[in-house]
């Protein structure tokens, strides 16, 4: 398994956390860049919301959360 792939994967995990998780405080200055991928993501949200909600409800009922 190549070291650069490992690096990429771990970087993915880090960037995901810093940009998408963590506490959000409502500051007036927004730091971001318009990103074409957001279009993809937006469409996917629109189309998958029902199915994912159902699925998560089932998983939660199954005791996945503690």
């Amino acid at each position: 398994m190549s070291r650069s792939l490992q690096h990429e994967v771990t970087l993915l995990e880090l960037v995901d956390r810093v940009l998408n998780k963590g506490v959000v405080l409502s500051g007036d200055i927004t730091l971001s860049v318009a990103d074409v991928d957001l279009v993809y993501v937006g469409l996917r949200v629109l189309l998958s919301s029902v199915a994912t909600l159902e699925e998560q409800a089932q998983l939660a009922a199954g005791g996945a959360q503690r």
Partner: peptide, 11 residues
């Protein structure tokens, strides 16, 4: 520690 998300800043 409660990590803050990077994305908002304050004047």
């Amino acid at each position: 520690v409660l990590p803050a998300q990077l994305g908002r800043a304050f004047r």
